[in-house]
Amino acid sequence: MMNSLILNAATRLLVALLLLFSIYMLLRGHNLPGGGFIGGLVGATGFVLYAIAHGCGATRAALRVEPQAIAMVGLGIALAAGVFAAFFGDALFTGQWLFIGATEEDYGLPLSSVLVFDIGVYLVVFGSILTIVLALEEEV
């Protein structure tokens, strides 16, 4: 933890921005560079910065949930997204798609199990990195 006023003040804003950016990276990932891995890394980096500025206790309070729980939930979501396909008679981890408001020209707003899977990846990466970093920092 560093006692720097500028850092303290800046990180509050930065964390919010990084978190927003990470979600943006996650959602655009299917069509442009980004995705769950990158999004999760960006989000985790934000909270690592927060931990450096405000300490681990404050970071855990800000997270509200244990990071290892986030990682496990993410793994569960990814698995559920994969098993979901089995209900439609497809092989496991086959993508399932629902296009809202689709026309012949446009796919509309696509909702898919693939996106759910990527959210799971995001949470796994996010939670795993914070688990390690916070535990190591608290130890020191």
Binding site: Q68, G74, F93, G95, S128, A135
Partner: peptide, 24 residues
Amino acid sequence: LVDFRALDTFGEIAVVVIAALAAY
């Protein structure tokens, strides 16, 4: 990553979780 080889990716993120839990 998330569609064609999603099962592989699932295995990989499981490894990440295991590494994190073991370190923890």
